[in-house]
Design a protein around this nucleic acid. Structure first.
Lengths: 95, 95
DNA sequence: ACCATTTGCTACGCTTTATGTAGCACTCAT
DNA sequence: ATGAGTGCTACATAAAGCGTAGCAAATGGT
């Protein structure tokens, strides 16, 4: 399951999420990702570009067509996240 | 988007994916995750348990009811992954 | 032509995280 | 009691990430 290794890296989901609906410049994307270090951001973007999931257009980085389906899934993921936030147990409870 | 930080950690998606349809013991889960170091596995499992997403039953670790929806999403993620594997550009091509 | 801004991206030193191996304490069947 | 399985921890080493500073190129204004 190669995508899990790619997309399971730190910042990957976040990066894709931030690019979900508008292109962002390197610096803008960095700002949205809690000022992740440019070293890592560049590594991630390089991997995403090589994977054909993201490209650098005139307005900044944006997801490719190939990536659209993933965007929908990420949307569901965040929907689920909201429900989870509402229902999750109090911190400190283990089982 | 708290879930992105939780689930975006290394091994998280993989762990949840491996638990998708049957409980696994600590050791079995570790084996399935390319023998991830027990240190990290334990950290991740602790986080997942605290988040109420995974619990330790008689047959090993298993996702909680709260986690079911996430499982469906992961399923879609891997479906998408298969298509992506088929369509992705040759390695080395950057835009 | 000149300067300031903004761009993508890299270098460097430091901290944090992950890895790999070994092994402990416990349970359970034999 | 012994042997195999369990969850989990310790420790030294390697890898990844962080934060800051800054470079080279492109852009826009005066």
């Amino acid at each position: 399951m190669a995508v899990l290794e790619l997309v399971g890296q730190k910042w990957m989901l976040r990066i894709l999420w931030e690019l979900r609906d508008a292109p962002l410049t390197f610096r803008a994307l960095r700002a949205r990702c809690d000022n992740v270090s440019p070293t890592v951001l560049n590594q991630r973007l390089a991997a995403l570009r090589e994977a054909g999931l993201v490209e650098l257009g005139d307005d900044g980085y944006e997801p490719t067509e190939l990536c659209r389906g993933l965007g929908d899934i990420l949307l569901q993921l965040t929907d689920w996240s909201r429900r989870w936030d509402a229902e999750r147990p109090a911190p400190g409870d283990i089982d």
